[in-house]
Write a protein that binds this DNA or RNA. Structure first.
Length: 463
RNA sequence: GGCCAGGUAGCCAAGAGGUAAGGCAGCGGUCUGCAAAAUCGCUAUUCACCGGUUCAAAUCCGGUCCUGGCCUCCA
């Protein structure tokens, strides 16, 4: 059984996709006007875990992520640099893909959909809304008429009769019938316009996700995700647009992840308290550790980012990899340990049940640590055989499809370093420990860490 | 003001009526020529606070305090 917390009902619900074994997910993606910060990536990592877990559970996942390449910020950026919108957004799109690759966020089986490539779909949706009387034209812009959707506020659980309207009113929105009405189509006011059946202009923000979601996933689909800051107004507006246009429910499950905090405050561009992935990599942090840190707190809890936690995450990831390396290269074949075999089965069950419980990752990880613990114990007690080790590495590899913390083994090494390792072994045999230690520290400076095992020295790259 | 999330050891973090998982760091022991890795042991009578319900509460109820978010672009 899989359950997810649905923002719509504020409850954990049993997950039942509309079509058996197929899950259709729309995930809100980046606006490509700058490098994404790690708060943004927290959301993408959460979605990545969700996606990978559903695949792990045997679902076929059909997923769309939008790339918002037309909005005020991208336009301002392009104007500032005096280049075309495409030229401007292209470099941030590229950067985005570089970054998510480093964070091991999957890109296969995902449709990355650019707003600028889906203008006709948006125009069609707006046309439908106009025809049905849920939208109206004022000046050259088109607005959604909220009064025609009585359920407005269902997702955010706002009672609009009790809420004051926002104070800031956009200059091009003064003609709205009601202050809450939101723009579907912004009438032409600069060069960034499309000439369409509904007039010259460009799409509003909310319409793009609706149009692209329905284009690829249908009028009703399983899941829609994003950060909690998208609940209102973005996702609320999407529901309004889609359900008024199609007369059908838009999305079954809404999942939202909490913010990444810095010094107790939301990490955001406007506050200036953000780290980009690039900032952290420049400081020498390991992208896998960053992934681990961002995924190891439950997605619905706020996570306070500190470099100290990042260091902790790095140590944990190192331990994980040390363990994996250990069992892969261990040359031991004593008697089979039935308890370990049992525990392997148990570990996988815990992993599945925990992630199936609204992605309880702490619990899932704890299960793996228990297995590591017992395995190490069994190794010390010589109570383990090759078959056990294979069972264990199989589990570790399997869960790693979801977690993505294992690193490839270093398979090549300089001949020069190899010679140094041999020289040190020779020195140790001759009990010339000062020479041996000297070589060891030289190697360390070169980023090679030595471990002396009963079976001879083992080396690893310093991480 | 309305709505929402959260407050559990030095740090991170599970648990949601049955007597505090796990990780990191630290300390002590084993192993080692010394390290590293591994391992063993120790590290919250207590879960923001105050009442209440119960045989039993970190978990339920009432109240209080604190932090953050949304209500305007935002993952």
């Amino acid at each position: 059984m899989i359950t997810f917390f649905n923002t719509l009902t504020r409850k954990k619900e049993i997950f039942q996709p509309i079509e058996d074994k197929i899950v259709k997910i729309y995930t809100c993606g980046p606006t490509v006007y700058d490098f994404a910060h790690i708060g943004n990536f927290r959301a993408y990592i959460f979605e990545d875990i969700l996606h990978r877990f559903l695949e792990y559970e045997g679902f076929t996942v059909k997923r769309v992520m939008n790339i918002t390449d037309i909005d005020d910020k991208t336009i301002i950026g392009a104007l500032k640099e005096n280049i075309s919108l495409n030229q401007f957004t292209e470099k941030y799109i590229e950067a985005f893909f570089e970054d998510i690759k480093k964070l091991r966020i999957k890109t296969d089986n995902i449709i990355f959909s650019r707003a600028t490539e889906n203008i006709p779909e948006m125009v069609n949706l707006i046309k439908t809304l106009l025809e049905k009387g849920h939208a109206y034209k004022k000046e050259n812009s088109i607005y959604f008429r909220i009064s025609s959707f009585p359920e407005y506020g269902r997702l955010s659980h706002f009672d609009f009769s009790k809420i004051k309207t926002g104070t800031s009113v956009d200059a091009d929105e003064y003609e709205k019938e009601s202050a809450r009405d939101f723009v579907l189509w912004k009438g032409e006011k600069d060069d960034f316009s499309w000439d369409t059946e509904i007039g010259k202009g460009r799409p509003g923000w909310h319409i793009e996700c609706s149009a692209m979601g329905m284009k690829y996933l249908g009028e009703t689909f399983d899941m829609h995700t994003g950060g909690v800051d998208n609940i209102f107004p973005h996702h609320e507006n999407e529901i309004a647009q889609c359900e008024m246009a199609t007369g059908k429910p838009f999305v079954k499950y809404w999942l939202h992840c909490q913010h990444l905090m810095v010094n107790g405050e939301k990490m955001s561009k406007s506050k200036g308290n953000f780290y980009t992935l690039r900032d952290l990599l420049k400081k020498g942090y390991d992208p896998v550790a960053i992934r681990y840190l961002l995924m190891s707190t439950h997605y619905r809890d706020p996570l306070n980012f500190t470099e100290k936690s990042l260091q902790q995450a790095k140590n944990t990831v190192d331990r994980w990899n040390d363990f994996y390396r250990r069992i892969k290269f261990l040359n031991i074949d004593e008697r089979k340990n039935e308890q370990i075999s049992q525990q392997c089965i148990k570990t996988e069950n815990i992993f599945r049940e925990s992630l199936g419980d609204d992605l309880n990752i702490s619990m899932a990880l704890a299960g793996i640590f228990e297995l590591m613990h017992s395995t190490n114990n069994s190794i010390t007690e010589n109570n383990i055989n090759r078959e056990n080790l294979e069972e264990i590495s199989k589990i570790i590899e399997k869960v790693d499809y979801v977690l993505q913390v294992l690193k490839p083994f270093e398979d090549s090494i300089d001949a020069e370093i190899l010679t140094l390792i041999e020289k040190r072994e020779q020195a140790r045999k001759e009990k010339d420990f000062s020479q041996a230690d000297k070589i060891r520290s030289i190697l360390q400076e070169k980023g090679i860490i030595l471990e002396d095992t009963p079976l001879g020295p083992r080396w690893k790259q310093k991480k």
